[in-house]
Design a protein around this nucleic acid. Sequence first.
DNA 1: TTAAAAACCGATTGACGGTCGGTTTTTAAG
DNA 2: CTTAAAAACCGACCGTCAATCGGTTTTTAA
Lengths: 129, 129
Amino acid sequence: MQLGELEKQVLQYLWETEVADAKQVYAYFEKRRGGSLSTIQSTLDRLFKKGLLKRDKQGHAFQYQAAIERDTFIGQLIKGLTSEFNADKGNSLLAAFTSVSPEFNEDQLERLEQIIEDQRDKNKSDGSV
Amino acid sequence: MQLGELEKQVLQYLWETEVADAKQVYAYFEKRRGGSLSTIQSTLDRLFKKGLLKRDKQGHAFQYQAAIERDTFIGQLIKGLTSEFNADKGNSLLAAFTSVSPEFNEDQLERLEQIIEDQRDKNKSDGSV
DNA sequence: TTAAAAACCGATTGACGGTCGGTTTTTAAG
DNA sequence: CTTAAAAACCGACCGTCAATCGGTTTTTAA
């Protein structure tokens, strides 16, 4: 999934704001970087066509909101990255994790251990089916 | 780091082949996708300028090789992803892990636990400095 | 019915990767 | 030292895609 700079920023805005129409998004970005309402509209439209936003018309205008959670999305991008390079997903992610591990604090390390435990249980029960 | 399709493939080729000159890379890709030697040369040059390849002239031609290990590179891309979306690196990666965890087998889960242990030790010793 | 608001469309621009022919530089043989 | 071949290098062009925005059509609500 290839995203331009403005698309990324709009997506982030919607992750934070939950729901907004074009005018509202425009109001936010107009202050920070200028541009026209049309630009925001077509960016929203592009994100919608890419499946990253949902929208439905409430009264006069489309109400947009993210179609996917930020974490899920980043997870997908990471997966895409590993496939893209024909890397074994598990090993690549493991290696990537090694390089990023200094970013984790004790709390996060614990949560990660919990995830491992859960996954280990799932692997076991899958095997028994 | 934004890479085109051919750039990705050439980079991968060099991760596997270790070292090669333009002619050799060309010989490989010519069979699979056609193209000219010039195209391969400029692709190598672009990757070199992006800092992803090293090269030095041995006799007649440049010998190229990857300037960064595949795993390290993917790690960097993952880090870049999380920063790009202003996401807390630890939490995002954690979330990404959750979404990708089904890809891990028991062996990889164990290695991951080992990494956690190592990192925990490092965190402790950092704290004591 | 109609004016305003929003969606929609089409054109343009700027990056950038891919492509390759032709020119310059380098190398090594004679 | 000369020179032919090999490789690097340069410049041009194309295709794709995000960004941009004006103008037209559609929708909404007064």
